[in-house]
Design a protein around this nucleic acid. Structure first.
Length: 274
DNA sequence: CTCCAGGCTTTAG
DNA sequence: CTAAAGCATGGA
C-alpha cells in the first residue's frame, strides 16, 4: 500500500467528492473509499493533511490534480470580487477538479441527465457490478468500471432492467461507437472542438459535454449549466438570459480558465443552501 | 396526486 | 434558427 500526504488547506476529501463531480465513492472509517476506472483508494483528513492510501499513487496524484497550485487559483477567483463567489470560494476551498477516467465520465454523465444524484450512483453501481472486472481493495471486493466493449455487448433492454430508463439507447449506442473508434483522438482537440465532437454522441448535449470536458479532459474553461446553475444565475446574478447556451457563454466569458472551478464552487455552495 | 432531478432527442413552427 | 413535446424512474 502506498501513501500520499498532502496539505489539506485546498484539498478536502468531503469537498472534492460531495460537490457532485464524481459518483463512485462511499464513506469508510475516517473518510471515503473512491473508485475510478479500475482503481481504488482510501482518502481521509488527518488534522492539517489529507491522506491517500492506494496501490497506484501515480494514478491518484493525477486524479486529485495535486501538481496544480489551488491556493493561487482560489485567490484569483476571490479577486473577481463577486461577494457570493468569494464566499463560496472560501467555504468550498477544499474542492479540486478531479482528473477522472474518461470513458467512465462519459457514461456517468449520460446517465446523469434529468436524474438525481442518489439514483445516478445506483445505476452506475449496478452497471459496474454487472459488467466490470472484479477486484479487491482493503480486503474487500469491488468492481471496476466496465470497458466500452463490455458495455457495447449489451442491448438497450439490459440497461433498462438496471433502471437507466430512456437513457438505455444512449448507453448502448454510444458504447458501440466508443468501442469501435476509441476516444484518444479527442484529447488532441481544442476545448471548442472537443465539445463539438462530444455533441455528436447520442445522449450527450451541451451540459453533459461540458461536464465530460471538465471532469474527464480537465478543460477548466468549461462551465456546465444545469438546473442549479440556472437557478443561481437568476437569483444571485440577477440574470435575464433564458437559454442555457447563452448563460454558459456569459459565465465562460467572465471566468475564462477559471470557469470550471468557479462552477464547482458555486454549484456546491448553492446545493448546500448558501 | 403532482413535481423534480447535474437534459437530450425529435418534431414542429 | 428557436420552441416545445416526450421521455423512465423513484423519492418528496
Amino acid at each position: 500500500m502506498q501513501k500520499i500526504i498532502y496539505d489539506g488547506t485546498y484539498f478536502s476529501p468531503k469537498d472534492c467528492l460531495e460537490c457532485g463531480q464524481i459518483f463512485r465513492f462511499r464513506e469508510y472509517e475516517r473518510g471515503y473509499i473512491i473508485f475510478s476506472g479500475s482503481e481504488a483508494c482510501y482518502v481521509y483528513s488527518d488534522g492539517e493533511n489529507t491522506v491517500i492510501e492506494c496501490e497506484n499513487s501515480e494514478y491518484f496524484y493525477n486524479f486529485f490534480d495535486l501538481a496544480r497550485d489551488y491556493a493561487q487559483i482560489n485567490n484569483r477567483i476571490k479577486g473577481y470580487d463577486i461577494p457570493i463567489l468569494s464566499r463560496a470560494a472560501e467555504i468550498c476551498r477544499g474542492v479540486r477538479i478531479l482528473n477522472q477516467n474518461r470513458e467512465e465520465t462519459i457514461f456517468s454523465f449520460i446517465i446523469s441527465q434529468n436524474n438525481n444524484i442518489p439514483r445516478i450512483k445506483g445505476i452506475i453501481e449496478k452497471i459496474c457490478r454487472a459488467l466490470g472486472e472484479r477486484r479487491e481493495f482493503l480486503g474487500k471486493e469491488y468492481y471496476a468500471f466496465p470497458f466500452a466493449a463490455a458495455l457495447a455487448s449489451k442491448p438497450p433492454e439490459f440497461y433498462k432492467t438496471l433502471g437507466a430508463g430512456y437513457r438505455d439507447v444512449f448507453l448502448s449506442n454510444t458504447s458501440k461507437r466508443i468501442a469501435d473508434e476509441g476516444i484518444d483522438f479527442l484529447d488532441k482537440l481544442s476545448t471548442p472542438e472537443l465539445k463539438k465532437q462530444l455533441l455528436t454522441y447520442l445522449g450527450i448535449g451541451p451540459k453533459v459535454a461540458d461536464c465530460i470536458s471538465l471532469f474527464g479532459f480537465h478543460r477548466t474553461d468549461s462551465f456546465p449549466v444545469d438546473t442549479w446553475i440556472e437557478k443561481l444565475y437568476r437569483e444571485d446574478f440577477s440574470g435575464t438570459l433564458t437559454s442555457r447556451d447563452k448563460i454558459n457563454a456569459y459565465f465562460c466569458q467572465m471566468f475564462g480558465e477559471d470557469s470550471g472551478l468557479v462552477q464547482q464552487y458555486l454549484f456546491y455552495a448553492k446545493r448546500g443552501n448558501l
